[in-house]
Amino acid sequence: MHSLFRPCIDLHNGQVKQIVGGTLHDTDGDQLQTNFVSEHPPAYYAKLYKEHRLLGGHVIMLGPGNSEAAKQALAAWPGGLQVGGGITVDNASEWIASGASKVIVTSWLFPQAQFSIERLRQLSALVGREHLVVDLSCRRKDGGWVVAMDRWQRLTDMRVDRECLVELAEFCSEFLVHAADVEGLCRGVDGELVARLAEWSPIPVTYAGGASCLEDLGLVSQLSGGKVHLTIGSALDIFGGTQVAFDDCVSWNKTGEMLPSSVSTIK
């Protein structure tokens, strides 16, 4: 068993972008650091992932103005992509009906930044555990990690640890964890977090944040024993990156091995 490459489509103001996670604020403005803005619509990436049968990918709506773009991606591959960003009990069923394989939820579970187990139970009962992903994107604090909500701006009262993951796993089928401190920086994954997620979680986990080379897939696979999957964003050539070739990620998923032709820098 080896870790898999999981694709993503990050949407901001209706466009596919790659953003440095720690710079995303409600006001955006001068603080926002964008690594890449695509000339292609979201459906282009959804069709690409469908062509290569890259399951478990996620569409993330970073703020308002992304609903139509997300629906275009889902329509291009019904049942092939997860969707997150602003998911609540009021709209989750609509997103499943629009073609999402699963809905991804974070902020709605934390009214006033306090975790609500009742809200999680309600949403799980509505869409079914098998259609629910809990996003535990987090920041480092006091020697551990704390879940961050509202586009990673606001810390909640939930620490990411074994007790947390075991409790939440009863109501969802997967976790998505962005390491917000390294998201978009292409300076390497948070290896300690990857190892702890593999140790603590009883269900599959997809980790995102900091992946800078194809070897990071091997590293995550080694650190997690294949239990944690990896999303690569800004480093990927289809998002303007120069460090990781999309075709090599596709090949890795099939074989779990680095190809002889794989290089650290794309010419």
Rank of each mutant, 00 (worst) to 15 (best):
H131T: 10
R154W: 04
L236A: 05
W145G: 11
I104R: 01
A46K: 11
D26Y: 13
R154Q: 08
T27L: 06
S221E: 09
R129I: 11
V89F: 02
H40K: 15
K102G: 02
K267F: 12
G233Y: 01
T23A: 07
G57I: 13
V133M: 12
A75Q: 11
H52E: 09
L126I: 03
S201G: 05
D190C: 06
N66H: 03
Q18S: 13
V194Y: 09
Y207W: 05
M149Q: 14
L214N: 07
I238L: 07
M258Y: 05
S116K: 05
S3F: 02
Y44M: 06
L176R: 00
D142Y: 13
T23K: 02
F115L: 12
N13M: 09
H40G: 08
Y49P: 11
A148W: 03
T242I: 10
A76N: 02
M1W: 03
G218Y: 01
S38A: 15
V182T: 07
S212E: 08
S251Q: 14
R196N: 09
R53P: 00
G241K: 02
D190E: 14
G241F: 05
A70G: 15
W145D: 09
V20W: 10
H58V: 15
S38H: 08
G85Q: 02
A208S: 14
Y44W: 15
V147I: 15
D216G: 01
P260N: 01
G84A: 06
L126K: 01
G143T: 14
G226E: 00
D28C: 07
G56T: 10
V16G: 02
A73H: 13
S107Q: 04
Q72G: 07
G191Y: 04
L236R: 01
Y207F: 15
W200E: 02
P202R: 01
L219W: 07
P78N: 02
A198L: 09
F110I: 07
G241R: 05
L185P: 00
S261N: 03
V244M: 10
G225Y: 04
V146D: 01
S38M: 11
D26I: 10
V263Y: 07
A113Q: 06
G144R: 07
E167H: 12
W108C: 06
S101P: 05
V205P: 04
N66Y: 04
